[in-house]
């Protein structure tokens, strides 16, 4: 089931994407004792200049999806269409041509910036890889520094001289160096202080408007995801349980897990003192041994017999909203 991008053809279209990691035992005689289906049959589309927010708890596979899309890791199955070309199996020179269009902003800017490189070297590195002439690199770095709100004087400094928010600006400048069309933001604002987080969120939105970028915005903070996204997908144990238009998902969530997730978020408003809160019992099951049927049935407040045996497929709930739950039959 795919949710159609609102405007025109999609930039990214993912179909039945899967990533299974083997679990091995033994140091010398390594043998495979199982598989973790980190991502298991995920499909979605992202239109030009649009943002898909991907939410879920730790271990649900949301970051793996992000890494698959930019081919940091190889998918086990499924296709990733970038502007009509399937890039899921490309490698070498063929993939190299596409890499400039796919970039990534990491959660922790300190561990994703080389401490021994200056800001200029960091931001220019993707250009070096792409073989841009030196003069062009220098001009582009100046342009990028201004674009993300850093001063020209910053180019000769090292990452440790910056605050967390500024480091994230450097990471964003690097991601934009090759003029990408699609950027994965993996928990890009999660490690920042609240006041600085708002600056980076505003920056990412402004860049999207100005450059026509498409984002996959992976985060666990639902209020930030709502603010950033056009569409939202909710993942649970490797699968999308609900996907659709942001307004629909937040106003009328259809899947019991989405409902629970939303009601778990403490709201910084006085009106919102906890009254009608759905507390989920139990914890996320081990992805090594996921529950049968609907993976959520062990924690679901409305599960019934069928949920244990049969896995629900995504089905349309409303225009622009689909959920995988037997109760929607």
């Amino acid at each position: 089931m795919l949710i159609e991008g609102a405007a025109g053809p999609d930039l990214i279209r993912v179909d039945n994407l899967a990533k299974h990691f083997p679990v091995t035992r033994g140091a010398l005689l390594r043998r495979v004792v199982g598989t973790v289906k980190a991502v298991d049959g995920v499909s979605f589309a992202i239109g030009h200049g649009r943002t898909l927010g991907l939410v879920g708890e730790s271990g649900c596979g949301k970051s793996t999806v992000g890494r698959l899309l930019v081919r940091l890791i190889d998918p086990t199955a499924g296709s990733i269409m970038l502007d009509g070309t399937d890039i899921s199996r490309l490698d070498g020179e063929a993939m190299f041509q596409h890499r400039r269009n796919l970039q990534f902003v990491f959660q922790d800017p300190m561990s994703s910036l080389n401490p021994r490189m200056t800001v200029e070297q960091i931001i220019a590195e993707p250009l070096v890889v792409q073989g841009a002439p030196v003069a062009e690199q220098r001009a582009r770095v100046s342009e990028l520094l201004a674009l993300v709100g850093l001063a020209p004087a910053h180019r000769t400094r090292y990452p440790h001289e910056f605050s967390g928010g500024q480091r994230q600006r450097i990471g964003i400048a690097r991601a934009l160096a090759t003029n990408p069309r699609f950027v994965v933001c993996d928990e890009a604002v999660s490690a920042l202080d609240v006041s600085v987080q708002a600056q980076i969120v505003n920056l990412l939105k402004r860049l999207q408007r100005e450059l026509g970028l498409s984002y996959l915005f992976v985060a666990h903070d639902l209020s930030v995801v709502r603010h950033m996204s056009d569409d939202v997908a909710v993942m649970y144990l490797g699968r999308i349980v609900e996907i659709g238009d942001r307004r629909r998902i937040f106003a009328a969530p259809a899947h019991p897990y989405t409902k629970a997730l939303l009601s778990s978020v403490p709201a910084p408003r006085q009106s919102a003192r906890r009254e009608a809160r759905t507390l989920l019992s139990g914890e996320l099951p081990s992805p090594l041994n996921p529950p049968s049927g609907c993976a959520f049935h062990t924690r679901c407040p409305v599960a019934f017999a069928r949920c244990k045996v049969e896995r629900p497929e995504l089905r349309s709930v409303e225009t622009g909203q689909a959920a995988a739950c037997h109760l929607l039959d």
């Binding site: 202080d193 600085v196 708002a198 600056q199 969120v201 209020s223 709502r226 603010h227 307004r247 408003r269």
Partner: peptide, 22 residues
């Protein structure tokens, strides 16, 4: 601080961020 947190129930165009850092 309150302006920096996007509300969950309503939509705002831009967050009222505090400039600079602590």
């Amino acid at each position: 601080l309150l302006g920096s947190v996007p509300p969950l129930e309503e939509e705002v165009d831009e967050l009222v961020a505090i400039e600079g850092q602590p």
